[in-house]
């Protein structure tokens, strides 16, 4: 079980890191031009639309669940033991 988790975490790394490394090659150019990114700037596409609300949501779960981390925030000692 733990071994498969380890493997899955490494797979996560490979799935996103490898395309990026390939993307750094000179032969590959950015394929989404700046003028094509209008949809990506809209509110419905924003993961961090309201930081004050996201921070609170993470706090609610961290205080009640054993898992922690990898939720995109900067985090720290929260005194929520």
């Amino acid at each position: 079980m733990s071994k498969s988790l380890n493997t899955r975490l490494k797979s996560f790394l490979v799935v996103l890191v490898l395309p990026t490394l390939f993307a750094c090659q000179n032969t590959l150019k950015p394929w989404v031009k700046p003028y094509e990114r209008n949809n990506l700037t809209l509110a419905v596409m924003d993961w961090e639309l309201d930081p004050i609300a996201n921070g609170y949501r993470h706090h609610v779960y961290q205080a009640r669940e054993g898992a922690r981390g990898a939720e995109g925030g900067s985090g720290g000692g929260c005194g929520c033991n």
Binding site: F12, L13, V15, L16, L40, G72
Partner: peptide, 10 residues
């Protein structure tokens, strides 16, 4: 132009 993904490790 319609799809973005992210990965986080901690």
């Amino acid at each position: 132009k319609n799809f973005q993904m992210g990965l986080n490790l901690e």
